[in-house]
């Protein structure tokens, strides 16, 4: 795999706040990446830096081998769909579709038109009259039909209902299969997109804490449950990502179990269960688990 974006020791400060703190990672060409993290973790700042909309305080970013800042050659191949895209006053959906080819040389108007139908958008309506979900759908359509070699979706589905979100995932996969490109999906809905991702990048308080292949990440943690003394004996000396207990029962999430470890655990009468990507990231970014929150 070749890297299309290389971020090396990049820091972005806003006053005393380090929005991005010494981040280093690469984006792989023609892979779908998940950029995951909590609110304010630095996801949007990171994407703004890579798309040349912000200047890094220090460090280096190259996109297709060049700095993205003020670089038309690079930016023509980049599409950044923001949470709230601003359009000129009085713009209608049809104007957005008509002007898109000026910015995106790979724009496919047939795909754009069929997506408009999929999302049931009124093309003659003014952008400012659209509902939140419809506005998000316009962003999704621009992001897909632009077929930019490097496409960023920053929380693309605010206000989109479940049906529309699944339309987005389906159309993304279908078009990506025929026209592979590098996609970065920034999202909170980790469970929904988990299976679409090939690479996962997790940012927490400005720092990159996970940058891994989605499949290996999925296999990287296991929940071990059983009697307190059995669990404690088993997890001693291992990296414990989380621990819950009720009465004499303990459930601990541990990293990297080998096949041998597993059979030892089973022989000790412990129950093993897999950890979803979402649970794993919740634990790694220091949050409470959803079930715990509900129980509290």
């Amino acid at each position: 795999m070749t890297a299309i974006v290389e971020v090396t020791n990049v820091t972005k400060r806003y006053g005393s706040l380090k929005a991005v703190n010494d981040a280093s990672f690469t984006l792989q060409e023609n892979a779908i990446h998940g950029l995951l993290g909590r609110n304010g973790a630095g996801k949007t700042t990171l994407m703004q830096l890579i798309t040349g909309q912000e200047f890094a305080t220090s460090g280096q970013i190259t996109v297709m081998g060049h700095s993205p800042v003020e670089n038309a050659g690079v930016l023509h191949h980049t599409c950044f769909i923001k949470e709230s895209q601003k359009y000129p006053e009085d713009f209608r959906i049809k104007h957005v579709l008509k002007s898109a080819p000026w910015f995106f040389p790979n724009w496919n108007s047939d795909l754009g038109a069929s997506l408009v139908e999929d999302f049931r958008l009124p093309v003659n309506r003014k952008i400012k009259k659209l509902s939140r979900g419809q506005l998000s759908a316009v962003g999704v359509i621009v992001g897909l039909a632009s077929r930019a070699p490097l496409t960023f979706f920053d929380e693309p589905y605010l206000g989109l209902d479940a049906v529309a979100r699944h339309t987005f995932y389906d159309r993304l996969l279908a078009d990506y299969a025929v026209h592979p490109r590098t996609v970065v999906l920034s999202t909170h809905l980790i469970d929904e997109v988990a299976n679409l991702l090939e690479r996962v990048i997790v940012i927490d308080e400005g720092a990159i804490i996970i940058n891994a292949d989605a499949d290996s990440l999925r296999a990287s943690a296991t929940t071990v449950a059983g009697k307190r003394e059995d669990v404690e004996a088993f997890v001693t000396g291992r990296e414990v990502l989380g621990r819950e207990s009720i009465g004499g029962l303990v459930s601990a999430t541990v990293a990297d179990l080998s096949a041998n470890d597993r059979s030892v655990a089973v022989k000790a009468g412990l129950d093993l269960s897999p950890v979803s990507l979402q649970q794993l990231i919740v634990r790694r970014t220091g949050g409470l688990d959803v079930e715990q929150e509900n129980a509290a």
Partner: peptide, 10 residues
């Protein structure tokens, strides 16, 4: 990939 809604690489 389309049927299972998963990444083609997977």
């Amino acid at each position: 990939a389309a049927f299972h809604r998963i990444n083609p690489a997977t």
